[in-house]
Amino acid sequence: MDIDLALVWALLIAASVFLYVVLDGFDLGIGILFPTARSSSERDVMMNSVAPVWDGNETWLVLGGGGLYAVFPLAYAVLMPALYAPIMAMLFGLIFRGVVFEFRFKAPPERRWIWDVSFFLGSLTAALAQGLALGAIVQGIEVEGRAYAGGWLDWLTPFSVMTAIAVVIGYALLGATWLIWKCEGPMQAHFRAKARLLGGLMLAMICIVSLWTPALDPQIAARWFAFPQILYTAPVPLMVLGLAVLLFTSLASTRDATPFLASLGLFLVTFAGLGISLYPNIVPPAITIWDAAAPDSSLLFLLVGAAVLIPMILAYSGYAYWVFRGKVRPDEGYH
């Protein structure tokens, strides 16, 4: 039986993008939540909670972007001109955050606020840029022949602004629930309250996106609401509802890890819903996975390398999270 290498690579890149979104998402969320911290000590704990893993989280962005360039060169050639501005803004935001991680703790106390503001702005910029890029892709990219045919600001629309706000709220929820898991005492209670508010906002944004996205394209609407397709897509909103109940019940209890896991579940289900809306297009509305794929010989050659590289990344990432699995306390680090 022949293996559909293009589909295999599409799944691998989708998995890499998802891992980047949820892993780098919670440390971007912590930066977004930085102004809500009540003291410098709390900000130290927030940054220490992600300091051992933040750079490893961004490995998945490199893998996803590099994989897109090598495996789906046509998609890369169309998406990059369409999304130059938000992608460059995202990269500058991520670079700025990396500088803050290195310099904040070395700054004298009276100047540390500069790096605190920088950490917030870098995180917010990266999250907004990712949301704008996502919205631009979902609403469709104008293509003529094999090239981008739109304008410089096609990525900036009411829909993409809405998705940018949704991404910021979602990342902030991940950050708040991560801090519930990693902190204790009054700080944990503080972010438990923030997570309740952000969870409600997140559900509201999921509802808005779920209703707006089918309105963009009749094919997407048919996939979600026409019979018999609705029988296959109905479990998605039901799982969102179940995970929302789990999130809020765990926030009302003393469980530390469950809110974060429920938030990850919400991201996974909504990511699957996005895949249902877009499949088989990699550049909506016209370029499919197979249209954009490199020759099978190239896909097979790259797949051999990925079979070695991806398990290594998973292994060292898992080991890092295991080593730093404890609570973070002021002036103590991990316990």
Rank of each mutant, 00 (worst) to 15 (best):
3 I>E: 05
4 D>R: 06
8 V>H: 02
8 V>D: 01
9 W>R: 00
14 A>M: 06
15 A>G: 13
19 L>S: 13
20 Y>F: 15
20 Y>Q: 10
22 V>K: 04
23 L>Y: 07
24 D>W: 08
25 G>L: 05
25 G>V: 11
32 I>N: 06
34 F>Y: 09
41 S>I: 14
44 D>N: 14
44 D>A: 14
46 M>K: 06
50 V>M: 07
51 A>P: 03
51 A>T: 15
54 W>E: 08
59 T>N: 14
61 L>K: 11
63 L>M: 15
63 L>V: 15
72 F>C: 03
73 P>K: 00
76 Y>E: 00
80 M>K: 00
86 P>H: 04
100 V>Q: 04
101 F>S: 06
103 F>P: 00
115 W>H: 07
116 D>Y: 03
121 L>K: 05
129 A>D: 03
133 A>L: 05
137 I>Q: 01
139 Q>N: 06
144 E>V: 13
148 Y>T: 09
149 A>E: 07
149 A>R: 10
153 L>H: 07
162 M>Q: 13
165 I>Y: 08
171 Y>M: 11
176 A>G: 02
182 K>F: 06
189 A>V: 03
196 R>S: 08
200 G>L: 11
201 L>S: 08
206 I>G: 04
209 V>Q: 06
210 S>D: 03
216 L>K: 10
223 R>Y: 00
223 R>E: 02
227 F>S: 12
228 P>Y: 06
230 I>F: 12
230 I>S: 13
230 I>T: 14
232 Y>N: 10
249 T>K: 12
251 L>G: 07
255 R>C: 02
259 P>W: 00
260 F>M: 08
266 L>K: 06
269 V>Y: 01
270 T>S: 14
271 F>M: 06
274 L>C: 09
280 P>N: 13
282 I>R: 11
287 I>R: 10
287 I>P: 02
290 W>M: 10
293 A>Q: 06
298 S>P: 05
312 M>Q: 11
315 A>S: 08
318 G>C: 04
320 A>Y: 03
323 V>H: 05
331 D>Q: 14
333 G>H: 07
